[in-house]
Design a protein around this nucleic acid. Structure first.
Lengths: 159, 159
DNA sequence: CTCAATTGAATTGTGTGCAATATAAATTAT
DNA sequence: ATAATTTATATTGCACACAATTCAATTGAG
C-alpha cells in the first residue's frame, strides 16, 4: 500500500505505456476480431472461414501457384496452410497436385466450383464497407497506413 | 477463356474490391499477426503468450474482477478465457475464486507474482515502439482511427 | 412463493496460427 | 558422382477464438 502511494504520485511514461487503451497493438488485434465477426455471417453463405476466404481471394487473382507463394502473399506458413488447403480440397474448391518439374512443390489450382464461387463472393466487400460506415477513401487511407506499419514490423522480423 | 476475355475488358468496382491488396481487413489481419511475431520473443521472457499479456494488462489496471468483465474489456468470451485463465493460474500469476455473493461469478485476482511481473513488463512497450519505427504521436493517431473503426464494426454487430 | 427465463462459466467441437520437427527432393560443394 | 546443405511441404503439439451446448445460480412475472 505504501509503494502504491508512491507509484500514484509518479506516473511514469512506462506506466502509461502499459495501459490497455494506449496500445495500438490491442487496437489492431481487437479490430481484426471485430472484422472476423462481421465477415462470419457473410462467409457462412459461401461455406468459407475468413482465412479460407483470403486464400480464395489470392487464388482468384493468381491460380496454379505453389503453397509457398500463397504463404508469402498471406504471411502464413505451411503449418497453417496445409490443413486449410486440405479442407478447401475436400470442399472441391481447389485441387492440389505435386509439380512434375519439382516434386517438392504442391501446386494449388481452382476447380470450376472454385472459380464459380467468385461471383457469389462479389457481394461481400460491399457489405463490409457498409458495416465499417466509412467512405472508400477513408478506408484506403487507413489501409495504407496500417500496411506501412505492418511492413516496418515485418522488416524488423527479417533482421 | 472467352468469358475471361470479356471480364478483362470490363473491370468492375466489384472486381477491384475483391483484390487482396484492397482489403483493409487483410491489412488489419496481417498486421495483427506481424505484431504477434514481434511480441513473441519479448513475451517469451515473461512466460506469457500475447493474449495472456493482454489479460495481465487488463488486470494490472483493475483486479478482482469477474471473468465477464475481462471478456468485455478484451472482446473475448468464456470459451477463450476459461482455459487461458486456468493456464495463468497454473503459472501462479492469478487466483480464481468463486464469488460468495453470486456463486455463478468467478473473480480473477492477481497473486504477488502476478503483480510483480508488471515491473518486468515495463520494458515491452518500448521495444514495440522501436520495432514499429514510428513516433508516439503517429501511433496514437493511427490507434484512434483503428479503434473508431472497430467500434463502428462492433456497433453493427450489436444490431 | 414458485417456476420459467436469464445469467455467468465451463465444456465441446472445429478451425486457425505457429514453433519444432520430419521427410523427401533438389542443389552445392567436394 | 556422392556427401552435405538447402528447400518445399507435411506433421505434431500447444494455444487461442468462437459457436453451441450445458449447468448451476439468480431473477422475475404472476
Amino acid at each position: 500500500m505504501d509503494s502504491m502511494g508512491i507509484m500514484a504520485r509518479k506516473q511514469t511514461a512506462a506506466d502509461q505505456a502499459l495501459r490497455l487503451d494506449n496500445q495500438i497493438c490491442f487496437a489492431v488485434y481487437s479490430t481484426a476480431h471485430a472484422f472476423n465477426r462481421v465477415y462470419k455471417p457473410l462467409l457462412d453463405r459461401l461455406g468459407l472461414t475468413y482465412p479460407q476466404y483470403l486464400v480464395m481471394l489470392a487464388l482468384w487473382e493468381r491460380d496454379d501457384v505453389p503453397v509457398k507463394d500463397l504463404g508469402e502473399r498471406l504471411f502464413l506458413d505451411s503449418g497453417t496452410l496445409t490443413p486449410l488447403l486440405k479442407r478447401l480440397e475436400a470442399a472441391e474448391l481447389i485441387k492440389r497436385t505435386r509439380s512434375t518439374e519439382d516434386e517438392r512443390v504442391v501446386l494449388i489450382a481452382l476447380t470450376p466450383q472454385g472459380h464459380a464461387l467468385r461471383e457469389k463472393a462479389k457481394a461481400v466487400p460491399q457489405s463490409i464497407l457498409a458495416a465499417s460506415d466509412c467512405t472508400v477513401g477513408e478506408l484506403l487511407a487507413m489501409k495504407d497506413e496500417i500496411v506501412a506499419l505492418r511492413d516496418r514490423l515485418n522488416a524488423v522480423l527479417g533482421e
